[in-house]
């Protein structure tokens, strides 16, 4: 499985994500610099890491979403290639229009950094097939702008079409319908606020994130 991790100025989970991907897939991902308009051919997955791209200036993910590399990411998604956005990566995907909705300031205004319980809402995607439907997993969050909002029509459509991938088991940040992660309608793009790359090895004390990456391997081999 060939993967690439985009690096924006201010990304700070890119190395963690590359380590997790290499650990689970056995292949070292390539780093994709934000200013490059082209990415190597044959990538199965392009992942957008967490962090504070461009200092969160204007809006979280707003400037990164207009970076040259994002056209290549959109083309990759358009070809059915897998795209994963974690935390700031999720914010970038919504800003780029690859996923619906927006991620706003947490309802309590605090930066939230802790383990949260997540319900796996759908296992019908390459990203979630490693879980059991309805299973509750534990994955850490670390964000200031994770409050997912969209109009009621969009939220209904996401739920009806099974595009809600993960839901917070309890109240975390004010997200509409406690949404923690969503898929696009083709189910090849996932954005989520929690950090699966931070729970992939024994030393992390929790392996619940590992199955997300393992699920990808089982699809792509």
């Amino acid at each position: 499985m060939k993967s690439g991790v985009v690096v924006f100025p201010g990304s700070n989970c890119d190395r963690d994500l590359m380590v997790a991907l290499e650990l689970v897939t056995g292949t070292r991902p390539v780093a994709l610099w934000h200013a490059e308009a082209e990415v190597p051919a044959g990538l199965d997955l392009i992942a957008l890491p967490g962090g504070f791209s461009h200092g969160d200036y204007l809006r979280s993910g707003a400037i990164a979403a207009r970076a040259p590399v994002m056209r290549a990411v959109a083309d990759h998604a358009g070809r059915g290639g897998l795209v994963l956005g974690i935390c700031n990566g999720f914010q970038v995907l919504t800003e780029a229009g690859l996923l619906p909705g927006a991620l706003m300031r947490n309802a309590g205004l605090d930066f939230i950094c802790r383990d949260v319980a997540l319900e796996v809402v759908t296992t019908d995607s390459a990203f979630t097939r490693g879980y059991r439907p309805g299973e509750t997993i534990t994955v850490p969050v670390a964000h200031h702008d994770g409050n997912f909002q969209a109009d009621a029509e969009t939220l209904d459509r996401l739920e009806q079409q099974g595009q809600v991938a993960f839901r917070y088991a309890g109240e975390v940040n004010g997200s509409a319908r406690r949404i923690a992660g969503i898929l696009n309608d083709r189910r090849n793009v996932l954005g989520l606020m929690p950090h699966p790359e931070r729970c992939v090895e024994e030393a992390h004390g929790n392996l619940d994130g590992r199955r997300l990456f393992a699920g990808l391997v089982s699809v792509l081999a």
Binding site: L58, R59, A62, I63, R66, T94, E95, P100, G101, A102, M104, Q149, A150
Partner: peptide, 9 residues
């Protein structure tokens, strides 16, 4: 439209 505002919100 293209950058300064996020017209979703």
């Amino acid at each position: 439209r293209r950058l300064l505002a996020n017209t979703v919100i």
